[in-house]
């Protein structure tokens, strides 16, 4: 239980600055966390995954991107068994090129997580900015921004991401396409996901803009951007954090889906989705481990982020949809 408490404090204390109000709020929050086994397990799973992604170069027994460490003779080694030619042992087996599956998963996790987090950050910055402007400035600006949001919301975000990826791919010169793929992916997923942030922030901003402290700030002559960033923003952030967590789960799945479809991370920088795409080719030939382990990892990651997001939503604000 003490471990869990520490984990709770660690996660609860990171995002918010220390003020009297937030400290009181945090203790309540921490109490809810300690009493939710789902949240504790999800956090632990996520912690393990994130840590193993960060320290992948230290943990991974091989570097799957260093061709000199690969031995084609090691190809298709089943998990936990010695290779029949070289006698090498691999925890989760190897793929057709003799790459250690465990190591490729660790490196794949890095790409999946990086793309997911970066895409959500991008979506968050874009959505919060546009939401603040729409809510505070109002008028035509508001109408245009929210109309665009409405139109985009008509289409499933995965479709929007695919389309943006396709266009961006067409714009980048052929020789840079593989290198740029990760950034294009972040851009595409981020741009497909800003609407949620903008809608919630706009709604909250409309409420805050009518408050007296905003009128006071305006009276003492603070500029519009200053009022938005320094005064309104801190007051509309708590739902944003919830949406960010849920978006992270969606972004990770979106990235995996795009990569699986072959319009995401290239085979030279495989994410979990790319690995599953590669593994699917061996479904019928019996090398199940090339497919199974990346799938299970993706599932554990998506499920834990999802559960954590759901829990966070209930714990922070039961009224939020």
């Amino acid at each position: 239980m003490t471990d869990a408490t520490q984990a709770a404090d660690a996660t609860a204390e990171k995002p918010t600055p220390k003020s009297r109000f937030s400290r009181a709020w945090q203790s309540d929050f921490a109490w809810k966390f300690r009493h939710s086994p789902v949240a504790i397990v999800a956090t632990l799973v996520m912690l393990v995954i994130v840590l193993s992604a960060i320290f992948a170069p230290l943990i991974a027994p091989h570097n799957p991107f260093d061709p000199s460490s690969l031995n084609l003779m090691n190809g298709f080694t089943p998990p936990g068994a010695a290779n029949q030619f070289t006698g090498d042992l691999f925890l989760l087996g190897t793929d057709d090129q003799g790459r250690d599956v465990f190591s490729t998963i660790l490196y794949g996790l890095r790409i999946s997580l990086f793309v997911g987090v970066a895409a959500v950050l991008f979506a968050m910055i874009l959505g919060v900015t546009l939401g603040l402007i729409a809510g505070y400035v109002g008028g035509w600006t508001d109408t245009i921004i929210m109309r665009i949001a409405d139109i985009q919301l008509t289409f499933p975000s995965i479709l929007v991401a695919m389309l943006i990826f396709g266009i961006a791919k067409g714009v980048t010169p052929v020789e840079y396409r593989d290198q740029m793929a990760i950034w294009v992916l972040i851009f595409a997923i981020g741009l497909s996901d800003w609407v949620q942030f903008a809608r919630v922030v706009r709604g909250a901003t409309l409420v805050q803009a009518g408050r007296e402290y905003v009128a006071a700030a305006r009276l003492i002559g603070r500029s519009g951007p200053a009022i938005m960033m320094r005064h309104i923003l801190p007051n509309v952030l708590s739902p944003v954090l919830v949406i960010a967590t849920i978006s992270l789960a969606l972004a990770i799945i979106a990235e995996a889906t795009l990569s699986f479809l072959g319009v995401g991370a290239p085979p030279t920088q495989p994410s979990l989705g790319t690995l599953i795409r590669i593994g699917q080719g061996f479904l019928f030939s019996g090398e199940w481990w090339i497919l199974l382990f990346p799938s299970v990892t993706l599932l554990a990651l998506a499920l834990s982020v999802n559960l954590l997001g759901d829990w966070l939503r209930d714990a922070l604000n039961p009224r939020l949809k």
């Binding site: 789960a249 995996a256 699986f260 479809l261 599953i276 479904l283 799938s295």
Partner: peptide
């Protein structure tokens, strides 16, 4: 929570393979 493509692969594995 399961991504669509994983459901598909799972079904292929069980019912086809």
């Amino acid at each position: 929570s399961l991504p669509t493509f994983l459901i598909g692969i799972l079904l292929i594995y069980v019912f086809s393979v």
